[in-house]
Amino acid sequence: MSNFVAMRDSFLERLHESMKEYKNSVFLCADFGSPVVDRIRRDFPDRCINVGIAEQNLINVGTGLALEGYSVFLYAIAPFITMRCYEQIRVNIAILQEVRKMNITLIGVGAGCSYVVSGPTHQCFEDLSVMRTLPNIEVISPSDHHLSAAVVDYALKDLGGCGARYLRLDAQLQNEIYTKECATSVLQNGLCEIIKGSDLCIVSTGYMTHQALKVAAEFNRDGSKVGVIDFVKFLNFNTSELLSVLKRYRKIITLEEGFKGKGGLDNLIQDFVFEHHLSREHDLASMGIPPRYGFQLGSREDIHTAYGIGRDQIAQKVKMLL
């Protein structure tokens, strides 16, 4: 596998391999595929079900299979597998898990602006906050294909102990950040300080970690020490590690392809800082999508710039705070 891989391909490849061993695993999609899905369909015709363009039924049918002991993987486009069927997720996964243990993984493809020119119906700026508000579901936002592939084993063995999880995947090919060997421990940990800085750090998630790394590299070439923390898991993350890492910085910028101040990464970090009494010593800034739906076309960077989270705009924010 090259170093430039789609998160969904590595995830589906690993799932395809695992379905041979884990005979109680089933894969369901809402008429959404990929070449690897075609292979799953070919090799496991009984355990690969396309329910059609019907996300509500995707969740309901998946729940029924999970109640009978199957490890269920549900696959669709990110905004549709979260918000189109939110009530089904709330009732049949989040509430029902209080009484009946299930193993369900929701896989949403198209985090943030990753469907670049498909507009606001297919872009997804709400999933981090709306899914994070539900109890009993982990939100996992990987930044590369090693992390996304590691989620297969994590899910099949329910290593998070939560039973259900929402995996938020970028739709585009991305460079690797991690190695196959370290991915499982990063996933288990839920966060990783990729660049150790001195005074200022960027806490980012998903694709934006790639942007944070590029911005930090520019500053650090000139002698600054901008840290980058990749935030991967929005529940059951290693709180003591986050605390000890954040304590080393006085300035924190959160960076996400999600609505700003609406309960996503920024609010998670702000709450964490507040709860652990770090706020007095810390300067906090957040960068995210402003509260509007845009119709900007062009490259992903063009769209980010229109929303105020382009790479230059991130660099300006860092410069201002340094």
């Binding site: 089933v26 009984d46 355990r47 079900i49 509500q56 039924n57 969740i59 309901n60 049918v61 998946g62 729940t63 029924g64 299979l65 999970a66 109640l67 009978e68 002991g69 199957y70 009530e87 089904q88 009732v91 049949n92 509430i95 029902l96 009484v99 009946r100």
Partner: peptide, 30 residues
């Protein structure tokens, strides 16, 4: 609610039962 012995699923929100039952039926068939 399913804390009651005899109830299998959450029932307060309408329109969920048939789809969940279809998943159960599919599982039993498999």
């Amino acid at each position: 609610d399913p804390v009651i012995p005899g109830y299998e699923t959450v029932n307060g929100s309408l329109g969920h039962g048939l789809g969940v039952a279809s998943g159960i039926a599919k599982a039993l068939k498999l």
